[in-house]
């Protein structure tokens, strides 16, 4: 059987001739996307230049205004970036969009810091604007906007330390983001210099509208559409290592095609949990989109409840998302997994087996103890169906263990993958310490970064 949407790059039998071109197309698509973003980020600034006469306030204060306008624009775009809108998510991949959203928060903070510093440097009497009691409302709105942003960043960076559940954090994140943008716009209206008249005012309002629409799409419209394409829990199976496989069946529709290595946001359809969604990798073969499976380890409030789900429970699947896949046609694959990071890898292997893929695979799989090795029985079966060699690495091996023990590092990889690494496409998924040790190892062994596809799993 050959499925139309295979894992990895396609096997020989269905290979298309444009392998390397795909990588180039992907880069140029992302380049175009960045160019579009850059254009949007400076549109209000350009509109001010067109619509306003030169000021007479000196370089520092004009630069302060420029950074303020850019900051407000970036803030509006930040709301739209993670919204999984087709035009944003398709060229980038949803996980790349979220990573970019995090990195651009640094750029936003830098723009705000430059704005504040230059306002004071340009005119030291502006220090009075920071007097909490005597400052005009426009300055108070700006301070409140910054406070909302600071709270937003603090709750994102220290979510675990603050013991915020994922659902609670998301609600807070949305509210603080909208609050910061609203207060920032209020500040611009109060300043009444560049953004309140003419095309620049309209553009800024338009960008804020785009941000808000992104949020409305993500939180209201999208869930409503997904509710029309539900999935039912078919089986709930305990796996080794404290994981649970959730087998779903598309109800009244053919299911959405996905590629191995991609992920989806799952949420229970009942109203009590309608706002709580969590991202998980597909663990099933991409050849059966109507019966997707997710293998989930109990870490937090939602994941701990997965084993208790009953067959027939309605689940909404927002996916597939993610661009975790090979960018060229390789003739061999090295897969490195740690713990529950095996889930996208097992999907790759199941799909390869369903496709009759004859290329060689080596899986280096790190676990704590032998009895905790998730999918260990199935991996034995897959070794018979595929040209697959599995190297188990245990952190706490049992007495008499003849296999590998310790960490997945350069020495271990060199022992098991002599000569294979340079020609291979390498996929990794696991917890941060394992990933960084394995990535260091691959670097020392001379594997080119563009052939390494790493995904860090996060616990939510």
């Amino acid at each position: 059987m050959t499925c139309a949407n295979p894992a990895l790059s396609t096997p020989q039998s269905v290979r298309s001739p444009g392998g390397m071109a795909t990588a180039k197309r992907s880069v140029s698509r992302k380049g175009l996307w960045v160019a579009g973003y850059c254009l949007a980020a400076v549109l209000p600034l350009a509109a001010v230049l067109v619509g306003s006469p030169p000021g007479d306030r000196g370089l520092a204060l004009e630069l302060a205004s420029a950074f303020g306008i850019v900051a407000l624009t970036l803030l509006a775009l930040q709301l739209a970036l993670p919204a999984r809108l087709g035009v944003v998510a398709r060229p980038l991949g949803a996980e790349v969009a979220i990573r970019l959203h995090r990195h651009l928060a640094d750029v936003l903070v830098a723009a705000i810091a430059a704005h504040v510093a230059l306002v004071v440097l340009g005119d030291p009497s502006n220090l009075a604007l920071f007097d909490p009691l005597g400052a005009p409302w426009r300055a108070q709105a700006a301070v409140a906007s910054c406070a909302a942003l600071a709270a937003l960043i603090a709750t994102s960076v220290w979510r675990r330390k603050l013991r915020l559940s994922y659902a609670c954090w998301r609600g807070l994140h949305n509210a603080l983001g909208i609050g910061a943008l609203g207060l920032g716009l209020l500040h611009a209206i109060g300043v009444d210099r560049y953004l309140t008249n003419g095309p620049s005012g309209l553009l800024t309002a338009g960008l804020a509208g785009v941000g808000l629409l992104g949020l409305i799409e993500l939180r209201l419209l999208r869930p409503r559409r997904l509710a029309g394409r539900p999935y039912l829990v078919e089986r709930v199976e305990r796996e080794h290592g404290g994981a649970t496989s959730l087998a779903l069946r598309a109800e009244g529709h053919p299911g959405r095609r996905f590629r191995s290595g991609q992920f989806a946001w799952l949420r229970l359809a009942d109203s009590a949990h309608a706002l709580v969604e969590h991202p998980f990798s597909y663990s099933s073969s991409a050849c059966r989109p109507e019966r997707p499976e997710f293998t989930i380890k109990a870490y937090g409030d939602f994941t701990s409840r997965v084993p208790e789900l009953r067959p027939g429970t309605r689940v909404l699947v927002d996916g597939p998302h993610g661009s975790y896949r090979a960018r060229r046609h390789a003739d061999r694959f090295v897969l490195i997994a740690g713990g529950i990071g095996i889930t996208p890898i097992i999907s790759l292997l199941r799909t390869a087996a369903d496709n009759g893929d004859e290329r060689p695979f080596v899986l280096v799989y790190g676990s704590l103890r032998w009895e905790q090795v998730t999918f260990r029985d199935e991996l034995e079966q897959l070794e018979r169906r595929l040209d697959l060699r599995v190297v188990h690495v245990l952190k706490e091996p049992p007495p008499g263990w003849a296999g590998e023990a310790g960490f997945i590092d350069a020495e271990l990889l060199a022992r098991h993958l002599p000569g294979e690494l340079r020609r291979a496409e390498v996929f990794l998924c696991g917890p941060p310490p394992m990933l960084s040790a394995a990535l260091d190892g691959l670097e020392r062994l001379g594997v080119a970064p563009e052939h390494v596809h790493a995904e860090q799993f996060v616990t939510v």
């Binding site: 960045v34 980020a41 600034l45 030169p54 306030r57 004009e62 420029a66 990195h103 990535l439 670097e443």
Partner: peptide, 30 residues
Amino acid sequence: MHHDETRWMTAAIELWCLLAALAFAAIQSA
């Protein structure tokens, strides 16, 4: 080691915004 494409994207956007702000200030204060 891992090729994180968001780094060049962020750097490009950051540089572009900085240049745009500088150009704006230079024109407005000229």
